[in-house]
């Protein structure tokens, strides 16, 4: 028996993604982005995002189906991000997914965006070991998750108490006069810099701090203060060193906490996901520390780390295989869907 063909819709933020998978096999990953529109604002503007999703949706579906070489009638199930995300943006994906599910008379699965970031790795590295630990880091999220059963049970261990990791990159880029989003330019500048040049603070790493929560607000402020002091003194700002030292602080805290969580919970598999997982230093340090701790590290390619439709299809495929009940046709968007809710 061939595995089910699943189409996935992702519109939680600024990417309109439609992916097609069969089992763990990626067939299509079509993406339209409104980043250019948002660049003007240096961030995601909800209303602009919704409008852009609406314009991009149908062409993106057509591209995905053509890329996969399948007809709409071949689809066995429809998956869609139901949250968390921007309400207006989520609604566009939900409306499209419901329309296809209804027209094709196929089951609809409303899925959690964060669990989908974990599921996407199965398209590259096969079935996830369970339990696994997942570190999801992006512009909007920073979460450490325990995943005993990706189709049914995801437990949050920690999260950011202030700024998300990607947001810290954006704000530090702003301080250094780099464009939005801040991740890629900081990563590039850091290659020429010394990561030990400046000893920036590692938030929430004291003995009495929450072991798995993270905080990047103090780090961001420390970078701003350091740069301001240089400018006040009329000295040049060593941009590469600042970028490298900042990036080192972020990667150090995230990987130390993820490895500690693996140890504390007796888990020997770690998955990275989210846009910040594309950062070269985070990937390298995670590899180094996981190897030292005997942990198997799985990191999807940068293209699959950022938001896309394939990740939603991947989780949908997992739900179908696990026999999880589909969603009701009146499925709604939940902008703050808790990570424990894998599907609804």
């Amino acid at each position: 028996m061939t595995e089910p063909l699943v189409i996935g819709f992702e519109t939680s933020c600024d990417e309109t993604g439609v992916g097609v998978v069969r089992g763990h096999t990626l067939l299509a990953d079509a993406l339209a982005t409104s980043v250019a529109e948002h660049e003007r604002f240096g961030g995601v503007v909800p209303e602009i995002a919704s409008r852009a999703h609406l314009e991009a949706m149908v062409p993106t579906v057509h591209r995905a189906l053509a890329e996969a070489g399948v007809a709409p009638s071949d689809v066995d199930a429809v998956a869609v991000t139901a949250g968390p995300g921007l309400t207006g943006a989520l609604l566009v994906g939900l409306a499209a997914a419901k329309a296809y599910a209804l027209a094709l008379d196929k089951p609809l699965y409303g899925v959690n965006h964060l669990a989908a970031h974990v599921a996407v790795d199965e398209l590259q590295h096969g079935r996830l070991a369970e339990p696994s630990l997942a570190l999801l880091v992006s512009g909007g999220h920073s979460s450490l998750l325990l995943v005993p059963d990706l189709a049914r049970e995801v437990t949050p261990l920690g999260r950011t108490i202030d700024d998300a990791a990607g947001e810290a990159f954006d704000k530090v880029a702003r301080v250094l006069g780099m464009p939005f989003p801040g991740g890629p330019p900081i990563d590039r500048a850091a290659r020429e810099g010394d990561p030990a040049a400046i000893d920036f603070p590692r938030g929430l790493t004291g003995p009495r701090d929450a072991p798995y929560d993270v905080s990047f607000s103090g780090l961001k402020t420390a970078v701003a203060r350091w740069v301001e002091a240089r400018r006040r003194a009329g000295e040049p700002v060593p941009v590469a060193d600042v970028a490298a030292s900042f990036q080192e602080a972020v990667a150090d805290v995230l990987t130390a906490k993820a490895v500690r969580a693996c140890r504390d919970h007796g888990v020997d598999h770690l998955v990275l996901g989210g846009g910040v997982a594309a950062n070269s230093r985070l990937r390298a340090l995670a590899e180094e520390r996981c190897a030292a701790a005997g942990i198997v590290l799985r990191v999807p390619s940068p293209r699959l780390c950022t938001d896309n439709g394939a990740m939603v299809a991947a989780l949908g495929s997992r739900l179908v295989a696990a026999g999880v009940a589909p969603s009701a046709p009146d499925l709604g968007a939940d902008s703050s869907l808790p990570v424990e809710t894998v599907s609804r």
């Binding site: 995601v44 909007g140 999260r159 108490i161």
Partner: peptide
Amino acid sequence: PEPVTSPTFVIARV
């Protein structure tokens, strides 16, 4: 009930 975190990336949170 939940922690209030930075709304920067999403512009606004309720």
